[in-house]
Simulated assay, not measured.
Amino acid sequence: MARSAAASPFSPDPLAVHNRLLGERGEAIAARHLVRGGMVLLDRNWRCEAGEIDLVLRDGHVLVICEVKTRTSTDYGDPLEAVDQRKADRLRRLGARWLRTHDCHPDDIRIDMVGVLAPPGRPVEVEHVEGIG
């Protein structure tokens, strides 16, 4: 009996797996970049029912909520173009939730963005923007 070439409904979507792995790689690259720049990594991939924060860091007395966007090319735009005002506002709400959950009282809170461009076979580019939105 011949087997169908169709994927099982229980098998993962290869594109979704690729994107998840690319995102994880980009977050690791961004975390290393920011820590090398003097920040302290406090949390990674913090989740609640309202969403997820990629990275939570401390930059001196400032708590930094950081969104990381990773791309292999700029065919669909620069990674930094992926965060609009609505996403920045959502990150601000998630940051306030993280603070309450961790009973943390920093002097200030900042929303940052890191764009990671990781083209196959070429050097990775990292761009960090402080204080978006």
Rank of each mutant, 00 (worst) to 15 (best):
A2C: 09
S4N: 14
S4G: 11
A5E: 06
A6W: 10
A7I: 12
A7E: 12
P9T: 09
S11N: 12
S11D: 15
S11A: 13
S11K: 12
P12N: 08
P12C: 10
P12S: 06
D13E: 13
L15R: 11
A16Q: 10
V17C: 04
H18M: 12
N19A: 11
N19S: 08
R20F: 13
R20K: 12
L21S: 05
G23L: 03
E24D: 14
E27D: 03
E27T: 03
E27A: 05
E27M: 06
A28G: 07
I29R: 03
A30G: 02
A31Q: 01
H33D: 15
L34N: 01
V35Y: 04
V35W: 06
R36E: 15
G37K: 06
G38E: 11
G38Y: 05
G38D: 09
M39R: 09
M39P: 00
V40T: 15
L42F: 11
L42P: 03
L42M: 11
D43G: 03
R44F: 06
N45V: 03
N45A: 10
R47D: 08
C48R: 07
C48Q: 10
C48I: 12
C48K: 02
A50H: 12
G51N: 02
E52D: 05
E52L: 00
D54P: 00
V56A: 05
V56T: 02
L57A: 04
V62M: 08
V62H: 06
L63D: 02
V64A: 12
I65V: 13
I65H: 05
I65L: 05
C66T: 06
V68M: 05
K69L: 04
K69E: 09
T70V: 02
R71L: 00
T72P: 04
T72A: 09
S73F: 00
T74A: 00
Y76E: 09
G77K: 00
D78V: 03
P79C: 06
L80N: 05
L80P: 01
E81I: 08
A82S: 15
D84A: 09
Q85D: 14
A88R: 00
R90G: 09
R90Q: 15
R93H: 10
A96T: 12
A96P: 02
R97E: 15
R97A: 15
L99C: 14
L99Y: 05
R100Y: 05
R100V: 13
T101K: 09
D103S: 14
H105L: 08
H105T: 13
H105E: 13
P106H: 02
P106D: 03
I109V: 15
I111V: 15
D112N: 04
D112H: 03
V114I: 10
V114Y: 06
G115N: 04
V116M: 01
V116E: 01
V116N: 00
A118I: 02
P120E: 11
P120K: 01
G121K: 02
R122H: 08
R122F: 13
R122T: 10
P123C: 08
P123A: 07
P123M: 06
V124A: 08
E125D: 14
V126D: 00
E127L: 12
E127T: 14
E127V: 15
G133N: 08
